[in-house]
Design a protein around this nucleic acid. Structure first.
Length: 421
RNA sequence: GUGAUCGUAGCUCAAAGGCAGAGCACCGCACUGUGGCUGCGGUGGUUGGGGGUUCGAGUCCCCUCGGUCACCCCA
């Protein structure tokens, strides 16, 4: 290992891996388009205060995990830790809501969080996701969740579970968190120090504690479901009904909470049983107050994000076909190499994937390379072929060889291909 | 950020303080212009890095870098 290695928590995507990534993106993007989402690309960095304002400056993401720096112009900049804030910023900046009551966008790209890496958690990681801005209808929640599940299914994931909750809204949540805080603080000896701290700062998160003592002590704790305001309770009930109606199985979990401040009402997580502790492959929810929070008109919104590396980890065992050339050009000598290059150029223009051999090794070796690359045909060009004007094409499956003049190569290969299908 | 554990050839892994190895991959020969199979041979290492203990360290100790697991956090 030399001096230069990829920074901690980052990974190269090598040519051997990239076909899996390509297939993943092709599969999920097709689903998002079917659900009516158009792609949006926003900058990888934004003004730092966008995230502080949008995600919440009480959150760990903003407090401890942001890649923030001052640029040469003295601007405070941060690498994006998630995409929703950037999308909402673009939505407002371009006034997308003016000409369209329901704006639906999807995104894909790298996100950055300064965390301690482990399997399924990196400092630079990829997310895809969607955001729908402009409707508060609970049926939209169901459509968004369905879209998330469909895209994960298209990516090859099985054994997914949908966990769903309502985290309330500014009308009802404060009253509930007050109750929960009081519940914890009434029995300080039964809870760990972390929970006691959380009771102070973010009471909902006590439900995340893995400590068995705390879990026992929380058994009788008040649950948010019972304290939602009429609006939130009706909304949640409608979402569950809609999911049931379209046939999506959901596990309501009144202890499910989210780490980002902007979530309101519907919050959900999709978990894969194929993963360890980092088992949430997708998560999202409603953020009806965020647009207003960022200076826009009151506009409801909902979306989700998918952790691409996590999906790829969970589908790792699925067999992936490699990309292979249609034609491998074996060349014997510099003159033949030029002729082979010309033939390859024409074939590529005709839509064939062509690899030219530059090794100048024995034909035997070149055929060996072609075999390893998985080529369907090998075009042999050497002194004999140059002299006769007829190139040899070898079918690597049958071993059959055909002599053809260079002009008729393309049409011959095309006829072979249509025969094969 | 906390705790634990691991790091040996391109890859997967051996070597229980005493000669750094195997399989796969790669290169060559049998087979000089015809692949897959087989046989034989070969290249390849500051044992992640630095320091220490010891006659002797891949192995023990300390520091550091990186991975992994759990916490934390979250996609």
């Amino acid at each position: 290992m030399g001096e230069f290695t990829a920074p901690k928590g980052t990974k190269d995507i090598l040519p051997g891996d990239s076909p899996r990534w390509d297939r993943f993106f092709a599969a999920v993007e097709a689903v998002y388009k079917n659900y009516g989402y158009g792609r949006i690309d926003t900058p990888i960095f934004e003004k730092e205060n966008l995230f502080a304002r949008g995600i919440g400056d009480g959150t760990d993401i903003v407090n401890k995990e942001m890649y923030a720096f001052v640029d040469k112009g003295g601007r405070k900049i941060a690498l994006r830790p998630e995409e929703t804030a950037g999308v909402v910023r673009a939505y407002l900046e371009h006034d997308l809501g003016r000409s369209n009551p329901l704006v639906k966008v999807y995104y894909k790209g790298p996100m950055f969080r300064y965390e301690r890496p482990q399997g399924g958690r990196q400092r630079q990681f990829w997310q895809v996701g969607v955001e729908a801005l402009g409707s508060a209808d609970p049926a939209l929640d169901a459509e968004v969740i369905d879209c998330a599940l469909e895209s994960l299914g298209a990516a090859g994931l099985e054994d997914l579970t949908l966990h769903i909750n309502s985290v309330g809204c500014p009308t009802c949540r404060p009253g509930y968190t007050k109750l929960l805080r009081a519940y914890v603080q009434a029995a300080p000896d039964k809870f760990c120090q972390t929970c006691l701290n959380r009771a102070e700062t973010n009471p909902l998160r006590v439900f995340d504690c893995k400590n068995s003592g705390c879990a026992v002590a929380l058994r009788e704790a008040p649950l948010i479901t019972a304290y939602l305001c009429t609006d939130c309770a009706d909304h949640f009930a409608s979402v569950l009904t809609a999911l049931q109606f379209i046939g999506v199985a959901a596990e309501p979990n009144p202890r499910l909470v989210r780490g980002l401040d902007y979530y309101t009402k519907t919050a959900f997580e999709i978990k894969s049983t194929a993963l360890g502790a980092q088992d949430a492959v997708a998560a999202g929810g409603r953020y009806d107050g965020l647009v207003e929070q960022l200076g826009g008109p009151p506009t409801p919104g909902i979306g989700f994000a998918v952790g691409v590396e996590r999906v790829l980890l969970a589908t790792e065992t699925i067999e992936q076909p490699a990309t292979r050339p249609d034609v491998y050009v074996a060349t014997l000598g510099p003159k033949a190499r030029r002729a082979g290059l010309a033939a390859a150029r024409l074939l590529r223009r005709g839509g064939f994937a062509v690899a030219v051999d530059f090794s100048d090794k024995a034909l035997k070796k070149q055929l060996n390379y072609a075999d390893k690359a998985g080529a369907a045909f090998v075009l042999i060009v050497g002194d004999e072929e140059l002299a006769s004007g007829a190139y040899v094409v070898k079918n690597m499956g049958s071993g059959e060889q055909t002599a053809l003049d260079p002009e008729s190569l393309e049409s011959w290969l095309r006829s072979q291909r249509s025969e094969g299908t």
